[in-house]
Design a protein around this nucleic acid. Structure first.
Length: 280
DNA sequence: CGCCCTGTTGGGGA
DNA sequence: ATCCCCAACAGGGC
């Protein structure tokens, strides 16, 4: 279930176990794992290097190695990182063997996860710059910034929130939650939102992501079992996956529809549907 | 048992 | 700029 809060939770948990160690060996069992560069090349570039930092940018994890060698990992839908899991762990795609004898396994049933190499800080910055916009939990995510972005977007607000080149890290679930909190319908045209609504939306995005991180940090205690992370936030969602249930705010019925090509949940009493429909 | 649909993501082509 | 489809697999409904 990796969205930004889950990725951040994983990062916080693994950083103390990985930073300062040497990446003794990298075993890639999935030829498709690293798309632009051959797996052997990736392994050759990282093996034997000290892990200086495990960072995060949007939904990417960044393994910063000595000598400005960077490995950017993306867990996509079903990927996860397990620390010293049981020997029967399934769907192991990549194994990071550390100099202290411990192992971190990248497990991913659907094989959507990716790993990419960047040689030099500049190459890493370029990689992120091409894909990611403002960091939602950083100081730059201001109402002014959001207003500037929103002014020139004719897309539905849900598509806007999911566009990683605008805001980095908001996924399908948190987009629904943030829109519900700010009482904005997912199909509202972004450029028509009022200043006050954008302000509420900004605060809602930050609040939902932070809540997810807080909740993850306090409930996840098993990083050896693939189920250690799943289900933790499920009961905290106010709208997502709650089709047919009563809105916690007004008692109206939560409905499901498609927006931005994704399953979308909303209370159309709290979040009034725009009159003019877009997209056929 | 099998078929069909859905899905936490993002890239590429139309 | 935007939309649709796809990657590969599990799980649920029928």
């Amino acid at each position: 279930m990796p969205e930004l809060p889950e990725v951040e939770t994983i990062r916080r948990h693994l950083a103390p176990m990985m930073e300062g160690r040497e990446l003794a060996r990298l075993r890639i069992d999935d030829a498709r794992w690293s798309v632009p560069i051959a797996p052997e090349e990736v392994a050759a570039a990282v093996e034997g290097r000290r892990i200086e930092r495990l960072g995060r940018r949007g939904k990417y994890l960044e393994l910063a190695l000595k000598g400005e060698v960077h490995l950017m990992l993306h867990l996509r839908m079903t990927g996860t990182l397990l620390y010293d899991p049981e020997p029967d762990a399934r769907y192991v795609r990549v194994a990071f063997e550390l100099s202290d004898g411990h192992r971190v396994l990248f497990c991913d049933p659907r094989r959507f996860g990716t790993g990419e190499l960047a040689l030099g800080d500049e190459a890493r910055d370029a990689f992120f710059a091409a894909r990611l916009g403002v960091e939602p939990l950083g100081d730059e995510f201001t109402v002014d910034h959001l207003r500037t972005l929103a002014r020139r977007s004719r897309a539905p607000i849900k598509a806007f929130l999911l566009d990683q080149t605008k805001i980095a890290g908001v996924g399908n679930i948190y987009a629904d939650e943030a829109l519900f909190r700010s009482r904005i319908h997912p199909l509202r045209r972004t450029s028509t939102l009022k200043a006050g609504q954008l302000e509420e939306l900004r605060d809602a995005v930050v609040a939902t992501l932070e809540k997810g991180i807080d909740h993850g940090g306090s409930t996840i205690d098993d990083f050896r079992h693939p189920d250690g992370i799943s289900g933790s936030f499920q009961n905290e969602f106010l709208v997502h996956t709650r089709r047919g249930e009563a809105c916690v705010r007004c008692g109206g019925e939560i409905v499901k529809f498609v927006a931005a090509g994704r399953g979308t949940y909303a209370c159309e009493r709290c979040q009034p549907r725009p009159r003019v429909r877009r997209h056929a």
